[in-house]
């Protein structure tokens, strides 16, 4: 397994996924993108293949070509090339949609810059509840969508996932924060947004601040669980394994 490949897959399938929430929960970006109707495909040679679709103020990010015909196809000659682009240190090779180049360099980059703003904390931003709320939502999304990729390509997560057991794990933030879930099948782990009925295990964080500290490794899990800031129920070995897998993300995404 190449470190660059896994980082590229996390960038493509877990980090870009946050564009979906950005255009909903950031008012400025919601207005900015409300009339967009475009599908962009990120094709990485020997790496991930992802789409980002905008339609009537909604954004969808996923694997492969998506439902809409791609208006733009961006080619990357390697996972490392794609990762450099995500770090703002390289440019893609457009292979379709040359007429949309202005859109990519001007408008789309405004959106990705805003995404970067929400994903990179500093002391001032951490004091802003609105920023914390969206950063927490995005961290949760990144975490959950990273799990299938880690389970497949990270050697330690691969061993861990083989002992995970089957069923769904729900993760949520109180009182009315985001809810996501992971369904562990025999051969796959499927992330999804929203609540799930009768999960095998559940993890609930008391509020956005606790969730932000917890998901970003500033709050010890054992302490948080003991005090009730984070509550876990059900098949605890699943939660324990998930937690160990989540700790692997930092090895690939800085």
């Amino acid at each position: 397994m190449s470190h660059e490949l896994l980082t590229a897959r996390l960038n493509a399938y877990a980090v870009l996924k946050n564009l979906e929430d950005l255009v909903v929960h950031d008012r400025e970006m919601a207005l900015f993108t409300k009339d967009w109707n475009i599908a962009i495909r990120f094709f990485v040679l020997n790496g991930p293949d992802a789409f980002v679709e905008f339609d009537s103020g909604k954004c969808r990010v996923g694997k492969g070509g998506g439902e809409k015909k791609s208006s733009v196809i961006l080619f990357f000659h390697s996972p490392a090339h794609f990762n450099k682009m995500m770090d703002g240190k390289a440019s893609p090779v457009p292979v379709k949609g040359f007429t949309k180049l202005r859109f990519l360099t001007k408008e789309f980059s405004v959106l990705t810059e805003k995404l970067e703003y929400y994903l990179k904390p500093n002391a001032d931003l951490l004091a802003d509840p609105k920023w914390v709320a969206l950063n927490t939502r995005m961290t949760l999304t990144t975490a959950v969508w990273s799990i299938p990729e880690l389970a497949e390509l990270d050697p330690v997560a691969n061993i861990l996932s083989s002992h995970m057991g089957k069923g769904s794990i729900s993760l949520g933030i109180l009182p009315d924060g985001p809810k996501v879930n992971l369904t562990v099948n025999k051969d796959s782990i499927v992330p999804a947004k929203g609540e799930i009925k009768a999960p095998a295990a559940a993890m609930t964080m008391k509020d956005m601040t606790v969730a932000n500290d917890f998901l970003n490794g500033r709050l010890d899990a054992f302490t948080a669980i003991a005090t009730g800031d984070v509550s876990i129920r059900g098949q605890i070995p699943m939660v324990d394994t998930l937690s160990l897998m989540l700790d692997r993300i930092a090895l690939y995404l800085s």
Binding site: A221, G228, I236
Partner: peptide, 18 residues
């Protein structure tokens, strides 16, 4: 103290610890 109470006496697997 790391974890407050560590190891097999950690309250974490006591559901709910409270």
């Amino acid at each position: 103290i790391p974890c407050g109470i560590y190891g097999h006496m950690s309250p974490a697997p006591l559901i709910p610890p409270t």
